[in-house]
């Protein structure tokens, strides 16, 4: 078991499932199974979500909706397909209106099997998603750091100031960490206000 450092927010969307997996996802959040002990919380807002739990297959009408939800989520993000319909199309695979599993329109990281998926399996999927989210966050931080570094060198090259480009590495890292710290606190503020608004 890994250490939980953050509390990722979960967004649940019903693709074209029969409801069985949806009520099991909801049952996971209730006191008996209590998935919230892993720090997650169910949100209705894709803009603040980190993990997308998707149930049911994809059809031509909900494909743009699912795509839009995925695009609205901030990076890094993890997608968890719950139930066999979201994995492959399941029992409805041969139906004329089913294009396939959730991975036909968005990249899926974790597949939870079952028809309907049992709460234990869903909790396992959520825990794996939380773990993956931690890793993704580290990767994302590195990516942001590299990106900012490149931007800086580009800028300084354009201004033709070779002294600044040869800045010691330690200082740059310091500046970056400050930057990211600021960004984090900003994010935290945004979340807090959102939470207050919800309540």
């Amino acid at each position: 078991m890994f250490e939980i450092k953050r509390s990722p927010w979960v967004l649940h969307y019903d693709g074209s499932s029969c409801n069985g997996c949806d009520i099991e996802v909801l049952a996971c959040l209730t006191p008996v199974y209590d998935a919230e002990r892993f720090g997650i919380i169910n949100t209705g807002d894709p803009m603040q979500a980190d993990i997308l739990l998707i149930t049911g297959g994809i059809n031509s009408q909900n494909a743009p909706v699912v795509k839009q939800l995925y695009d609205q989520m901030p990076r890094p993000k993890v997608v968890c397909a719950v139930g066999v319909c979201a994995c492959t199309g399941g029992i409805f695979k041969d139906c004329y209106n089913i294009l396939g599993g959730a991975d036909t329109v968005i990249p899926v990281d974790i597949y939870v099997p079952g028809c309907a998926a049992r709460p234990q399996a869903i909790i396992d999927g959520i825990v794996k998603a939380v773990d993956l989210f931690e890793k993704r966050l580290e990767e994302h931080k590195q990516w942001v750091a590299e990106h900012e570094n490149r931007e800086k060198t580009d800028k300084s090259a354009a201004a033709k100031q070779p002294q600044k480009a040869q800045q010691p590495a330690g200082e740059t890292a310091k500046a970056q960490s400050q930057n990211s710290a600021q960004r984090r606190s900003k994010n935290a503020k945004g979340r807090k206000t959102a939470k207050r608004r919800k309540k």
Binding site: S16, N59, F92, Y96
Partner: peptide, 23 residues
């Protein structure tokens, strides 16, 4: 409506009447 339409009724042509009980 139509976000969850699967076309389940059409499966009667692909599954026999005993299997359809599960569908």
């Amino acid at each position: 409506v139509g976000f969850i339409h699967r076309g389940l009724e059409n499966l009667v042509q692909k599954r026999d009447f005993n299997q359809m009980a599960y569908v």
